[in-house]
């Protein structure tokens, strides 16, 4: 038990640092005072007022995760490799990027442009979440 305390302290410290960094990232994105709120899932309705919460409201609900792209028609080779993996995404990926550099960051850069969120349900993905090849 004694020997585990330092590692627990380290873990706690790491969590605090992570939380602080995440908060800073969220604040950076939320400075975009003209940015719209997220639209409700599947609503297809843009909301064009209010500040961007910066909250990754759609985390986990994306229908096209980085591991859902292995069909012939949509091979993982054809996709950007700079997207964060699922574990990273859950913990550290910001809602948007203020200083984008990679493809993933560019397409998810912070912006005050109006937007629509599309996360339709019921699409016939393969059991592993991949897109089926077209007939």
């Amino acid at each position: 038990m004694r020997s585990t305390l330092p590692s627990l302290r380290s873990a706690a410290l790491a969590l605090l640092v992570t939380a602080a960094l995440a908060s800073a990232a969220l604040l950076a994105c939320s400075n975009d005072s003209d940015a719209p709120h997220d639209a409700p899932v599947d609503s297809g309705q843009p909301v064009d007022t209010g500040a961007d919460s910066g909250t990754p409201a759609d985390a986990g609900s994306d229908t096209l995760g980085s591991d859902a792209l292995s069909s012939d028609a949509l091979s993982s080779d054809a996709l950007s490799s700079d997207a964060p993996d699922a574990i990273d995404a859950a913990e550290t990926v910001p809602e948007c990027y203020t200083n984008p550099k990679t493809h993933y960051e560019i397409i998810n850069a912070c912006t005050d442009a109006a937007r629509v969120d599309k996360h339709p349900s019921g699409l016939p993905f393969l059991p592993d979440g991949a897109l089926p090849p077209p007939p």
């Binding site: 759609d58 096209l64 998810n108 969120d117 599309k118």
Partner: peptide, 11 residues
């Protein structure tokens, strides 16, 4: 509006 693969919102 179009939402690309890996993109969080459509624009």
């Amino acid at each position: 509006a179009f939402q690309a693969p890996q993109q969080k919102h459509g624009f």
